[in-house]
Amino acid sequence: MRDWGPTLHELRRVLLPGGRLLVSVDHPFVAYGSQQLAGGSPNYFDTYNWTFNWTVGGRTVPMSFWVRPLHAMVDAFTTAGFRIAVISEPQPVPTARELFPEQYRALTTGPGFLFFVLEAV
Rank of each mutant, 00 (worst) to 15 (best):
residue 1 M to L: 13
residue 5 G to A: 15
residue 6 P to G: 05
residue 9 H to P: 00
residue 12 R to F: 04
residue 13 R to W: 05
residue 16 L to N: 11
residue 21 L to Y: 03
residue 30 V to W: 04
residue 32 Y to C: 04
residue 33 G to M: 13
residue 33 G to P: 02
residue 34 S to C: 05
residue 36 Q to E: 10
residue 38 A to F: 05
residue 39 G to P: 10
residue 40 G to H: 05
residue 40 G to C: 01
residue 41 S to A: 10
residue 41 S to N: 12
residue 41 S to G: 06
residue 44 Y to V: 02
residue 44 Y to H: 03
residue 44 Y to Q: 03
residue 47 T to V: 15
residue 51 T to F: 08
residue 54 W to T: 14
residue 58 G to S: 13
residue 64 S to Y: 00
residue 65 F to M: 02
residue 65 F to E: 12
residue 66 W to C: 07
residue 67 V to M: 10
residue 68 R to A: 09
residue 69 P to W: 01
residue 69 P to V: 02
residue 69 P to L: 03
residue 72 A to E: 14
residue 74 V to C: 09
residue 76 A to S: 15
residue 76 A to Y: 07
residue 76 A to Q: 06
residue 76 A to C: 06
residue 77 F to S: 01
residue 85 A to Q: 09
residue 85 A to P: 00
residue 90 P to N: 05
residue 93 V to K: 10
residue 98 E to T: 11
residue 100 F to C: 01
residue 102 E to V: 10
residue 104 Y to L: 11
residue 104 Y to N: 14
residue 105 R to E: 15
residue 108 T to V: 15
residue 108 T to L: 05
residue 114 L to T: 03
residue 115 F to I: 11
residue 115 F to H: 11
residue 115 F to S: 07
residue 116 F to M: 05
residue 118 L to N: 01
residue 120 A to Y: 01
residue 121 V to Q: 04
